[in-house]
Simulated assay, not measured.
Amino acid sequence: MIKACDLHRRQLLKGLGAATLLSQLPAFPVLGAARRHPYIDGLSFLPSDLADVKASGLDAFICDVSDIEAIKQLDGTINYKRTFKACMASIKQARQRVADNPQILLLGEKGTDIDAALDSQRTSVFFQIQGADCVEGDLNLIEEFHRQGLRVLQLTHHYGNEYAGGALDFDANGGLNKPLTARGRELISRLNEANMLVDVSHSSPQTALDAVKASSAPIIQSHGAARALVKHARCSPDEVIRAIGDSGGVFGVFMMSFWLTYRNPPTLDDYIRQLEHVANVGGVEAAAIANDFPLRGQENLLKLNNDNAEGVKEYLEWWHSLAAKHVLGFEREPQHVVIPELNHIERMSRIDHALAKARFKATDRDRFMGGNWQRVLQQVLV
């Protein structure tokens, strides 16, 4: 439970951030005129073909630069660890790629770099790593990652580590929902000091709630979905969404359709329903767009012309392995992977049009499509 004084502080922080930072955004015209509000994606990747950056219409995105090492766990399942060696090599490679393409990309080191990118018609990318495993127990390595451009660090990926509980953690006693550890609180303190965003995507609900309490800055979930709509361990309960909103943070709704809806086939309306739920629970200043696929979309599904019945097969072995462990939600076999309308390079404009068609207020559309990400990036990355 959030203490009353903490809640007041976070509500004040959120209100001040919204009032000051959103007021700095230009007055945007209605849809149909030239778009002025930024399009910002909470999680994607540098594409092999940088023409995709322009085609996406994105003005900025949180860019996962992780590299992974496959680790077989004691129970036989596979976890993918972001090791220091792999992630340091990957971030240096990404940094060089940005530097080599200054006409397209701008390395986002401060939140104000979004404005610089908008002025120069480029796309700012804010480097993120999905899992604090890359720190490998040495919190001083945060400084080295920061020097290389890292600005967002996710506490864990699916399974827990020495800092945090993972969304899919499970043990012989049925243990799920593990808390943030003492080392995790130290990690968050160091990230706050470095003006880096703390990302609770893939964390257990208790870790996410603990992270909000431990942090002196807003907390984000760069990519996720609401458990109220899909009862699954990878989806966040309302108390987490609310706590993120109360911290002044942002919750990005991603594109993996089996965590968005039970309906088959999934549609754009299902995505809007998730976004609306986050806004209703966490506040309109908390809801935002995320991807978690490449800019073009889920590549295997694109090759299959978005045939979900065929494309979902690549996930079933992993899904069944967790169903056997009785992890929440895996007992129900998925029927789809993507929303076909959104598995497309132009997903942002399609969501924008759908929000307008659904008669969302223009100011709320501005927030959802990029204003909320811009606010929190400006507030934390100083």
Score class of each variant (00 low, 15 high):
223 H>M: 02
23 S>M: 01
354 A>V: 06
136 E>M: 11
39 Y>I: 10
281 V>D: 01
323 A>R: 11
294 P>R: 08
67 D>L: 09
138 D>M: 03
273 R>N: 07
108 G>E: 10
158 H>K: 00
4 A>G: 12
283 G>H: 04
73 Q>D: 10
165 G>D: 05
314 E>H: 08
24 Q>N: 07
127 F>D: 11
239 E>Q: 12
354 A>G: 06
32 G>E: 09
172 A>Q: 14
349 S>C: 10
265 P>D: 06
6 D>P: 04
375 R>L: 05
243 A>N: 09
304 L>W: 04
83 T>H: 06
21 L>K: 08
374 Q>G: 08
164 A>R: 01
244 I>M: 05
191 L>W: 03
348 M>P: 03
371 G>C: 02
197 L>P: 09
154 Q>T: 12
79 N>V: 09
307 D>Y: 07
171 D>E: 11
312 V>S: 06
236 S>N: 04
122 R>K: 15
209 L>Y: 04
208 A>G: 02
288 A>Q: 06
355 L>C: 00
379 Q>A: 04
171 D>H: 07
137 G>P: 00
94 A>Q: 12
353 H>Q: 13
192 N>I: 08
23 S>R: 00
95 R>P: 13
201 S>H: 03
302 L>V: 08
278 V>F: 02
328 L>I: 07
274 Q>L: 04
17 G>F: 02
129 I>E: 10
359 R>E: 08
173 N>M: 10
330 F>A: 02
63 C>F: 07
72 K>N: 05
328 L>A: 07
226 A>C: 13
228 A>P: 01
76 G>W: 11
37 H>F: 11
311 G>D: 08
176 L>S: 11
113 D>R: 07
261 T>S: 04
49 D>A: 15
375 R>H: 06
33 A>Y: 06
312 V>M: 12
174 G>A: 10
169 D>Q: 13
151 R>W: 12
380 V>F: 04
114 I>M: 07
193 E>M: 12
209 L>K: 06
17 G>T: 09
110 K>S: 09
191 L>E: 03
